[in-house]
Design a protein around this nucleic acid. Structure first.
Length: 422
RNA sequence: GUGGACAUAGCUCAGCUGGUAGAGCCCUGGAUUGUGGUUCCAGUUGUCGCGGGUUCGACUCCCGUUGUCCACCCCA
């Protein structure tokens, strides 16, 4: 074969497709239970949206975007994340004029030109939630609660909520300054990578795994918050405590996207390897203004669905309930296909699902396929049956079979419905 | 973008220090001339990822390339 799927992409079908469908259905139900409605935005946007929102210095923008030009030379980008597009849609459609809180969820593919690895793809899928229009810490708590419910719904245990506040434009710049000066005083105690980070993106030093000793000497953001951020942070903590949601304050948690303010959180799944962050989120009070809109405080999170699906405990997602077809139609003589298909549509009209075997293969194979399809009854239409104006109906559990006249087939199957299909 | 491992039949894999490929599953046919989920028999599996080099000869060694996996950067 000449063609292969592009690097970091995947074909989803069969059992895995079933699992995806079950997972998505459950996510949508859960979001609805919290009053979130779905929003679908384009998979590509004007490149500037991401450059402005996510931040020019971020890795996402500097090396991971799928950017291309269309025939009018406009620069477009396959969305690497969906918070900025949702905010763009919110503003563009004038939804902020409705007032109150707007709650959206989304589910769909995202694209990042990154090196594929366990739980990481170039086209991947995210489920995410955005609540726009409130700076109340209560909505932060709601979002964290919702994100945890997602994983509970799939049988996860032992999850850990990491919580931090990354400040706001009032307090973060001065913190970064003190951080930088304290970093420059450390000189060679820093690893090579961190020496660079100290200049380009000092907050990222907190992510370094080699510089643990150094980190203890650094100032901590939660000690340097302005009054407003501090109060927000404290209120959120007490709300979470009231809601019996346990969390770990992690002053080293910094998010890679520029738009985050105040609350930042992650949900960790210990034992998932390097890709143990199942979901990340936070508040982005400045994003609406960055996009040229009014001040709209907002918070959200997004969850990587491949990571979710691959980490679901084995016993938690039951696939055995989904019978594919009720009935199977074996047709040993292909000349009778038309008659079989007519009967099949009659049965479909009566609400049954039925698969018609049109390959003309040996009976043995047809029955084998019937067996694997999980059908309760197999209808057989060949020479013998045609001569008697009926079809053979075989009960796949008992193996017994009877000849049923054509005009009684639907009634016969319906009679069996009670025990077989309910 | 960096480092490491790997790449053989549709799938899972074997193939020792170079002599041009094998098993299981699947699939097809038969025992059962139209009857499955259990047997038994037989058969088809293939540019040994791609390109180049060394060699009388390369799946095997060397180089490059593409892809996969793992880790880093970063992130979901």
């Amino acid at each position: 074969m000449r063609f292969k799927r592009p690097r970091g992409t995947q074909d989803i079908f069969g059992d895995r497709m079933d699992r995806w469908n079950i997972m998505e259905k459950r996510l949508i139900e859960l979001a609805a239970r919290f009053g979130y409605t779905e929003i679908r935005t384009p998979v590509f946007e004007v490149s500037d949206l991401f450059i402005r929102a996510v931040g020019e210095g971020s890795d996402i923008v500097s090396k991971e975007m799928y950017t291309f030009r269309d025939k009018k030379k406009r620069s477009l980008t396959l969305r690497p994340e969906n918070t900025a597009p949702v905010m763009r849609a919110f503003l563009e459609n004038g939804l902020h004029r409705r007032g109150g809180i707007t709650r959206f969820f989304y589910i769909g593919p995202m694209f990042r030109y990154d090196r594929p690895q366990a739980g990481r793809f170039r086209q991947f899928h995210q489920f995410g939630v955005e609540a726009l229009g409130s700076s109340n810490p209560g909505i932060d708590a709601e979002i964290i609660d919702l994100s945890l419910e997602v994983y509970k719904a799939f049988g996860f245990r032992g999850l850990e909520v990491r919580l931090n506040s990354v400040g706001c434009p009032k307090c973060r710049p001065s913190f970064i300054e003190t951080l930088q000066s304290s970093l420059s005083g450390l000189g060679k105690e820093l690893c090579d990578a961190c020496s660079e980070r100290a200049v380009t993106n000092p907050l990222r030093v907190f992510d370094c795994k080699d510089c643990d000793d150094v980190k203890k000497k650094l100032p901590v953001i939660t000690d340097n918050l302005c009054d407003e951020c501090m109060m927000h942070f404290k209120e959120l903590q007490s709300l979470l405590t009231d809601m019996r949601i346990s969390f770990v304050i992690d002053p080293l948690l910094v998010r890679g996207l520029d738009y985050y303010t105040k609350t930042a959180f992650e949900i960790l799944h210990p034992g998932a390897g390097a890709q143990n962050a199942l979901c990340g989120g936070g508040r982005y009070d400045g994003l609406a203004e960055d996009c040229g809109g009014p001040f709209i405080p907002a918070i959200g999170f997004s969850s990587g669905l491949e990571r979710l699906l691959d980490n679901i405990p084995d016993d938690a997602l039951d696939l055995s309930t989904g019978r594919k077809t009720d009935l199977f139609f074996a047709v040993p003589d292909q000349e009778f296909c038309a008659k079989a298909m007519n009967l099949a549509s009659e049965l479909r009209g009566a609400g049954f699902s039925i698969e018609v075997e049109l390959s003309g293969r040996a009976m043995k194979k047809q029955l084998k396929t019937a067996s694997e399809s999980g059908a309760c009854y197999t209808l057989i239409l060949g020479n013998d049956e045609m001569e008697k104006d009926g079809v053979t109906i075989k009960d796949m559990e008992t193996g017994g079979q009877v000849l049923v006249p054509f005009d009684e087939v639907v009634r016969y199957i319906k009679r069996g419905r009670k025990e077989k299909f309910e």
